[in-house]
Nucleic acid binder design. Structure first.
Length: 220
DNA sequence: GGCCAGGTGTAAA
DNA sequence: TTTACACATGGC
C-alpha cells in the first residue's frame, strides 16, 4: 500500500499550489465543469469569455437566451449542441431551487446533480467540491491513468473515489489541491503515449522502466 | 492530416 | 456489467 500523501507532497513540491477552480463565481465554475467535459481547458476559456461578453454567466440569462445564441457562444468548447442543453437544464434546476446559493446548500446536492441529464459523476463531484466546498474526491481520466501506471491501481469511478477518500483525511482543501495537481501532472507528463519526460513521479512509476518492452502498458 | 483533450448517454453484447 | 460509439472544436 503506497501512501497517496507522498505522491501529493511530491506533486505539490514540483508544481506548487494550483488554487483551483479558476472562476469568478460558483455558477461560472459549474458552467466550466460542463464545458470542460472531454475537452482541453483552452477551448473552455474561449467559450467562457464569449459567455461573459454576452452576459450569460447567470442561471437566469442562460435560461432566457435563445438556444442558437447560446450554441454560438459555447461552440469553441466542442460538443456545443449537447453542452448548451446541459447548461439550460442545470440553470433551470438551479432556478427551481431558488438560486445558486440554496441549490449548493442542499444536503443531497450530489444526487440532485446526477439526476440532471448531462451531468455524470465527475462533473457532479467537481461541482460539489469546488462550488459547494464539500469534501468529495474527483476522479478524471488523468487520475485513472496515473493510478494505473504509478500505483497499479485500477477500478471503476466509485472504486477509485473510495480509494482516495479512504487513504486521505476528509479535507476539502486537500481534495481540491490534489485533484488539480493530478491534472497538472497529466497534462505535462502523463499523456496517453509513453512520453513521460521529466515526470516527478518517475522513480515511483512501475511502467517507467518497461517502456521499451511494454508499450501496451500505456493504453487506456 | 491524425491524435488528443479535466465525460456522458445510449445501445448492444 | 462491460464495451462501443456519437457528440465537435482547436492545438500541435
Amino acid at each position: 500500500m503506497v501512501s497517496l500523501r507522498i505522491i501529493y507532497e511530491k506533486l505539490l513540491y514540483s508544481f506548487g499550489p494550483q488554487n483551483w477552480w479558476p472562476s469568478d463565481t460558483d455558477f461560472e465554475m459549474m458552467v466550466g465543469a460542463i464545458l470542460t467535459q472531454n475537452v482541453n481547458w483552452n477551448n473552455v476559456e474561449t467559450a467562457i469569455d464569449n459567455l461573459k461578453d454576452e452576459g450569460l454567466l447567470t442561471p437566469k440569462s442562460i435560461t432566457e437566451i435563445d438556444m442558437k445564441k447560446l450554441e454560438m457562444a459555447v461552440k469553441p468548447s466542442g460538443f456545443y449542441r449537447q453542452k448548451s442543453k446541459r447548461l439550460k437544464r442545470l440553470s433551470e434546476e438551479i432556478l427551481n431551487r431558488g438560486g445558486v446559493e440554496p441549490f449548493l446548500a442542499e444536503n443531497n446536492l450530489r444526487e440532485n446533480l446526477l439526476t440532471i441529464k448531462g451531468i455524470g459523476p465527475e462533473t457532479a463531484d467537481s461541482m460539489v467540491l469546488y462550488a459547494a466546498g464539500k469534501p468529495t474526491f474527483v476522479i478524471d481520466a488523468y487520475t485513472k491513468r496515473i493510478m494505473k501506471r504509478v500505483e497499479g491501481v485500477t477500478g471503476s469511478y466509485r472504486e477509485l473515489k473510495t480509494y482516495f477518500e479512504n487513504e486521505l483525511p476528509k479535507d476539502v482543501d486537500l481534495y481540491k489541491e490534489f485533484h488539480a495537481l493530478l491534472v497538472e501532472l497529466g497534462k505535462k507528463h502523463c499523456k496517453k503515449g509513453p512520453d513521460c519526460e521529466g515526470c516527478p513521479l518517475a522513480s515511483r512509476c512501475r511502467y517507467m522502466s518497461s517502456i521499451s518492452k511494454d508499450q501496451d502498458a500505456f493504453t487506456k
